[in-house]
Design a protein around this nucleic acid. Structure first.
Lengths: 232, 232
DNA sequence: TGTACATCAGTGAACGCGCGTTCACTGATGTAC
DNA sequence: TGTACATCAGTGAACGCGCGTTCACTGATGTAC
């Protein structure tokens, strides 16, 4: 059995550090993340961690990027899986996002919960951060390009002109821009935030006891949102 | 000028402590809240704070209760103000909630953001905590009792029986129970979480730069939610 | 294949910091007679 | 109104703790010739 090469060891131990960090995230939250505790968990002296990580902030940044990428993978994979209908594709993607969040609640909180005191996310996190919303937008865009997008049900008719302009600009800003009127984009933005809002509610137990099966509630909400965007 | 009585001084200093705590909440978040720093801010020695507060956890609990009560006041006042229509009452209440959240972002995060590591909210927080959702439910309930609630637009038709039961039970559980079918209650629960989700998005800047005026977006979303619940 | 040197991983001690909480104390404010 | 005592607010020192980060070091792994 050949001895482990240095590069391999470096990879392995970096992974151990990240795993210990994620474990700790689950126990004390991002604000309580401690390099010394991580070192202890993997049986190293605290200063040794600095061979693998520049600083505590650097570690946080890596955790965030990894989490965004994991969630982005999940969303993109679900969004490009075969589906009978656009609405089915949408709800499947939403469900996949939810499942990841439920399986990784603390990483989800790291991304979408309260900001960590004293930490400012660097720009490297932006790219991975938008993958999930881009994956959702792509579903709508594709439906729109194939002219399968239903007209918005109730326009409500009183978007301010400024807001309507902003929303149309938003639809053009994503990769695969989709031709849609402002009300549709509003439904998308609002629906997008709704799904994340519902998830946050579920994760922080705000609906505790009200509803037996949160997954059913979420799926029903996702279907409703997709329908209102015009997906069928 | 008569000298300050002991009870008055106690009130005044307790207020000073709470204000300093809220100020600190805004700077370092709940996780970074420090009794020693509070003592410093109000020019006391750290141990003196213990004359007014049992422990750090006790202080957190008070902050939470105060914040819930402040938000509850705002929501209840808005919900009982004169309004031309049910939908107008609903959007006004939602706007009032948003304004409070924007004015007190860190208290809002304390209530609806990630949990504070190592802190478990005691039961005293439950009562104040539900005031805001009860205020919203009351608007729907009153409309329903006066038979001004429109039938749900798109039933989507496939709620699981279990979920439908849960939702109907929920409608009966609030004070002023309202007679509504499961789809309406679903719209309420989902809409409620949507408003909070949108607020969380706005506060953590997830929509940064997409939309010029977040208030317009929020109001449009609130109107849409209210409409879908059946308010007119 | 063997040797000389450079690179790197991990050690252990130390720095300076801030934290929550306790405790015996002093001196001022309130209360009972 | 005055005195004796009880209550309370605030002090300052101390306890024990954990943290991020630096630094000179040892010994093992890799590389060039």
């Amino acid at each position: 059995m050949s001895r482990e090469t240095r590069a391999d060891a470096r990879l392995r131990i970096t992974n151990e550090i990240m795993e210990a960090a994620r474990r700790q995230l689950g126990e004390v939250g991002a604000a309580g993340l401690s390099l010394r505790e991580i070192a202890r968990e993997i049986g190293m002296v605290s200063s040794a961690v600095y061979r693998y990580v520049d600083s505590r902030d650097d570690l946080l940044t890596r955790l965030i990027i990894d989490a965004y990428d994991a969630l982005g993978d999940v969303a993109e994979r679900a969004a490009s899986a075969p589906a009978d209908t656009d609405l089915g594709r949408w709800t499947a993607t939403a469900s996949a996002i939810r499942r990841w969040a439920i399986a990784h609640p603390h990483e989800y909180q790291l991304l979408y919960g309260s900001p960590v005191p004293g930490y400012a996310a660097p720009d490297d996190t932006v790219g991975p951060g938008i993958r999930v919303v881009v994956a959702l937008a792509r579903i709508v865009g594709e439906a729109a390009r194939h002219e399968r997008l239903a007209a918005p049900g109730e326009p409500l008719g009183d978007l301010t002109p400024q807001l309507a302009d902003d929303l149309r600009a938003l639809a053009d800003a994503v990769p695969d821009p989709f031709p849609a009127d402002a009300t549709t984009v509003l439904a998308f933005v609002v629906g997008w935030s709704q799904l994340f809002g519902l998830l946050s509610f579920e994760l922080t137990n705000q609906t505790r006891g009200y509803v037996g099966d949160d997954a059913d509630l979420f799926d029903a909400a996702a279907r409703r949102v997709g329908h209102q965007i015009g997906l069928r």
